[in-house]
Structures are given as C-alpha cells and as structure tokens.
Design a protein around this nucleic acid. Structure first.
Lengths: 113, 113
DNA sequence: TCCATATTCAACCATTTGGTTGACGATTGC
DNA sequence: GCAATCGTCAACCAAATGGTTGAATATGGA
C-alpha cells in the first residue's frame, strides 16, 4: 500500500476505526480508554490504532506506561481534496484537484490516482 | 458491509478503482474502454465496476451490448461530510457533521460512526 | 443463420484483513 | 523488590479481497 490515499481510505473503511476517530475528535485518549467501549480485545484495538497511525491519521505518544492517542486531521486533507473533486460540493478546490489529477491520471497504469 | 460509509471508503481504497473514477470524471465510458488502459483482465475490471456500483459511486446502464458507466457523485457526499468533520477544512459544515455524530456516536458498540 | 463483440459468471488461487489468545517488556505504586 | 497495570508482539485462524482463466449469455452485423 504505497500510496497515501490507499492507506487513508482503507483505514477509514472500517467502522471500528471510524468510531475510534469520532472518540478522539472529542479528546485525546489512552489506548485502554479507547478500547473500553468495544467488545473486542485490547490487542485488536491496538492493531486498529496502528493502522490509523500508519495512515498518519492519528499520532501516538508514550507518557509513562500510558500511550496517548491524538487525532492528526491534516492527514485527511489530501483525501478530502480528492473526494471533493467528484461532486459539486460547495467548496470544490478545482485548482488543487486538477493539479492532483495532472500528476496521476496521465498514466493509469501506475494506478496512483 | 452494511454501512454505506464502509462500502464507499473501501471502494475508494483501491488505486485501480480511483483511477477508474478519474477516467469517468472526464466522460462516461463503456466497460471495455474503461478496461483498456489497465494491465489486468476485463473480468477484473468488471468486478471493480461492480464494487463501485454497489457503493453507489457509479451507475451502469446497458445500451445494446454495451454497458455504459457514469459517475454518481452524490454518493460521495456523505463520506465527504464525514471527513470534513476531522479537519479545519475551509467549508466545514459543522451542523451537518454534529447532527451525523449525534446519530452514531452515542453507542460505539454499534460501530456505525 | 452464423460469427464476432461485449460483458458477466463461476471456480479457483494467493494474499490480506480482522479477530483471537498467551507471552512478553515497561512502568508504576505499595 | 514485587505485584499489578499498560500496551505490544507473535502465532494462529476464518473470512474477505483482488486477481486469474474458461465458459456462458446477450446483442449486433454480415
């Protein structure tokens, strides 16, 4: 998954991970607290957090024995720009989108769009 | 994958499918023509188009023996609103986003955020 | 009618994904 | 020092994903 958009969109594709992001939108949280509302194991949540971190959507910082998770909304900007190109959403930044396409559409073979 | 956002984001997670969407942004296309630039088989592209159609991102219409594919940008609106909630993107529609969260965040157990 | 074109279907395969459990390394507090 | 807590790691598993090939199903044109 070399492309950043691959990582971001597939991270967002899982409902557990989207729920985690919604929680982190309210406030930073420790891993254990993130895991609390879910039925699955702590290890599973830890994996989800790893996927979100790899995609750049969250950052993890160890303080003592607690790992704090915080949202990193900037990572979603590229994906948001990409999506806005496909609708007549109010704030379509066409310049940014076409610049993006120029760099990626030329050769679909590279599958980097 | 009951949630629409699941289907939309996981559809967008694949670079081949994003490349297809970029092509359809220029103009409607027949399946064979969509497949032309790619190295993979026609059947593989047909599957990708099925995934995009199931997510509601494109529509397919048979005319004669040709199946035409066209973009359906409205389907991306929900996903775009969701994402915009996570950044200070210029056009953050906070009302829409918070209304959305109200309906989904209350019980993370249902994983519908 | 017969053949070529356009697309999907079905079976199969390798890899990835999302989960489990149990052991492990760090840190804290008694 | 010792025990409890926090989090990750490793091995494993079932199911989903993304691709293949070959057959099947329209439809269009000669």
């Amino acid at each position: 998954m070399t492309e950043p958009l691959d990582a971001i969109f597939s991270a967002l594709a899982d409902p557990t991970r989207r729920a985690i992001l919604s929680m982190l939108l309210i406030d930073d949280m420790a891993v254990t607290d993130v895991a609390a509302p879910f039925k699955m194991s702590l290890a599973a949540i830890s994996k989800h957090l790893g996927i979100l971190a790899d995609a750049g959507i969250i950052a993890r910082e160890r303080r003592g024995r607690v790992v704090w998770c915080k949202l990193d909304p900037d990572a979603l900007r590229a994906a948001s720009v990409w999506m806005q190109g496909f609708g007549q959403f109010e704030t379509l930044d066409l310049d940014a989108f076409e610049a993006f396409l120029d760099g990626s559409l030329a050769d679909p073979e590279n599958q980097s769009a």
